[in-house]
Amino acid sequence: MRWQWAVVAFVAALSSTPSGQQFRSGAELVSVDVLVTDGRSPIAGLTAADFELTDNGVPQTVEQIYVEQLPLNVVMVLDRSGSVRGERLRALKAGALTVIDRLRPRDRAALVSFSHRLDLGAALTGDTATLRRSVETLDAEGSTALRDAAFAALALRTAEVTRTLVLLFSDGLDTASILSEAQVLEIARRSDAIVYTIGIRERPARNRPGYRLRSDRPVDHRFLERVSRETGGRLLYAEENRDIERTFGRALDEFNTRYVLGYAPRGVVGSGWHRLEVRLKKRSGTVLARRGYFAE
């Protein structure tokens, strides 16, 4: 049961944290990464007692809660297809560099870039110089294998005990993936990574040839919305190119305000899909969490 194992291993990772909070050794524990907002801004200062959590409908006791203590793996997945050429690529690089600059000492990052082909610009590393170089050398050409890139980022997770944030930027429709949306969403459901996606709103484009996005609403990023929702993440929009850098920073800031809830499942057994529901007990607020987890 990969999920439980992963959380048990948090013990070692957290034993030196100032909070001193630890999971019980040997227990089967599940972690749930949640974002709590008042509709606009994250709500800080919550404790385990503020949460109500059910696993397959069975109420559970949240035993541990973490905010920001856990080291972070950020897998940046950047669309470098032909559509980002020019100003957008410069803005995208600035966004990625912002994330690199904000990494904490124990955090690491990786860079996956994609057009129709996928490249690993940098494997997971804490070496920010390497990361910066991989970002600075990006260029743009080709079509868009968005779904394949999302899968690659989810599959790249290591066995190490960290939280994984997949930060996925794309400005267009998928034109080149071998994997279907359903296939990637299935992987997203099984992954313990949280996917934040960043899209960009397009101005209407009429009477141009080829595939075009709907002109009466923002760029169709249905897949971006779905893959982030499956993992408990969010789709954020940059309104225009110059807003991309700020949106990257916003995604990371928001991720760092999330809570990691730990509980030892009681009254639920068996492998397969476990449906999760997380609510606040005594106060109002919106809780965003993954819909469940897959126990092997």
């Binding site: 429709l173 034109t175 040839p209 080829g210 595939y211 996005l213 169709d220 249905r222």
Partner: peptide
């Protein structure tokens, strides 16, 4: 080619 598209519209000429 269009059957792989999940969204968007096409301008036909």
């Amino acid at each position: 080619m269009l059957s792989d598209q999940t969204a968007g519209y096409v301008n036909f000429f």
